[in-house]
């Protein structure tokens, strides 16, 4: 089994779209994501998942120099940023792509599938 990171990325257009959603529409997405999460757990593919606070809430720590530098906001201006994610287990990429298709439908957004680095061999 391999682990895959299913990332839901947001860009400003997505943000505008989400801001215009009615509470009923948002409930629909929450319910669909809940159902998806339940399915992932029942199938034994669940590792971890979470939704993230907006990018403005982030803080960057840079301790590569002599002194740690702590700054407000994202590390770099970028059009896309991570909004939420799942970590799942699948036998291979085809298995992960099936989950990504279901997840994309549930959260009404694109899902990026990234394989984790293999664990170092003992």
């Amino acid at each position: 089994m391999s682990q895959y990171f299913l990332a839901v990325n947001h860009d400003p257009a997505d943000e505008a779209r989400m801001a215009e959603m009615t509470p009923a529409q948002m409930q629909e997405v929450f319910a669909a994501v809940d159902a998806f999460n339940t399915e992932v757990k029942e199938q034994g593919a669940w590792v971890f998942a979470g939704g993230l606070q907006p990018i403005e809430m982030s803080t960057v720590v840079d301790n590569t120099g002599a002194q740690p530098v702590i700054t407000d906001g994202p590390y770099a201006e970028s059009k896309e940023y991570l909004g939420g994610f799942w970590v799942i287990e699948a036998p291979d990429l085809d298995g992960a792509l099936v989950w990504a298709q279901k997840g994309s439908k549930a959260c009404a957004g694109k899902v990026e599938v990234r394989p984790f680095q293999d664990e170092p061999e003992a």
Partner: peptide, 14 residues
């Protein structure tokens, strides 16, 4: 190799 793209004939649905 990294993404574990499978080495097999896809399932009937795909």
């Amino acid at each position: 190799a990294a993404a574990h793209i499978p080495y097999r004939v896809p399932c009937a649905a795909d």
